[in-house]
Amino acid sequence: MNIAFSPCPNDTFVFHAWVHRLLEGAPELNVTYADIDKTNSWAARREGPEVMKISYAALPYVIDDYELIPCGGALGRGCGPLVLSKNGGADPSTLAGKTVAVPSDKSTAYLLFRLWAAQKIPEGPGKITVMPFHEIMPAVRDGKIDAGLVIHEARFTYKDYNLDKVADLGDWWEEDTGFPIPLGAIIARRSLGMKAPLTEWIRESVEFAWANPDASMDYVMEHAQEMSQEVARSHIDLYVNEFTRELGEDGYAAVESLLGRAADEGLIPAFDLQKLRD
């Protein structure tokens, strides 16, 4: 079976057992490691592997052809994207008319930024530029851009770049809605017709990872893009949680809230929310 997910520690931790054929009865995986911007694009073009990790923000564009697998993704509390600036403090109004770099314009992070900015920056930011996420903090530090939207391990390292946190979009979302924040989703082609077994295999892989937390560390660090083991473990602890094992009613409600609200604001195409569960 062909699958694509990121080389980030949460994904390699989750899929380690399946990738290494430690699950009885699960098919062998052919893995493509790709950042979420690439998998979002592949899904939009109906290309790429049958199973992929994409952004929840990209799901409305592909929901007719791909089904949401209710485990293996990233959704939780205290794990949202950050808006950073240099010497900017925590006043969102300082971003009015400014240039902001984002890692993708089809990401959940960007969708949250748009919802947050509509509420907090009535004048609106200025230019939005898409930039690989690992280049954003250096660009803000060096004054090439005014602010950046960052994800993943950047929440642990942004102070190393002498940057200030303008907003934690996860905190804002939780305060505004009471829901956890949906980030990344596992999807499979509907034509594959394997939602039930895929859910079982991914859940078994998650549970194996939790039961054997050190077993995956060599694999995790092999793909961890030069981050320290301490940062990798913090990344896993933050992004792999009960919603990874089972989306559940709270998880579905969070996704429906995010995508329904974004559709109402005209930020994504409107669609039948029931398709998230079908």
Rank of each mutant, 00 (worst) to 15 (best):
S6N: 03
H16S: 11
A17Y: 08
W18N: 05
H20K: 14
G25W: 03
N40R: 04
A43Y: 01
P49V: 04
K53F: 09
I54D: 12
A57H: 01
V62K: 07
I63E: 06
E67S: 09
G78I: 01
P81E: 00
P81T: 03
L82P: 10
V83A: 00
G88I: 08
G89S: 03
P92H: 02
T94R: 15
D105A: 08
L111T: 03
I121W: 04
E123C: 10
T129N: 09
H134Q: 13
A139Y: 07
R141D: 10
G143C: 13
K144W: 04
K144L: 14
I151P: 13
E153A: 14
K159L: 08
D168R: 13
L169Y: 05
G170H: 05
W173K: 10
D176E: 15
I181F: 13
A188T: 12
G193C: 06
E207T: 06
N212E: 12
E226T: 15
M227K: 15
A232W: 07
R233Q: 13
S234T: 08
Y239V: 04
R245T: 07
L247E: 00
E249C: 00
G251F: 06
L258Y: 02
L259G: 01
A262D: 13
P269W: 00
L273A: 11
L273C: 09
L276E: 07
R277P: 01
D278Y: 12
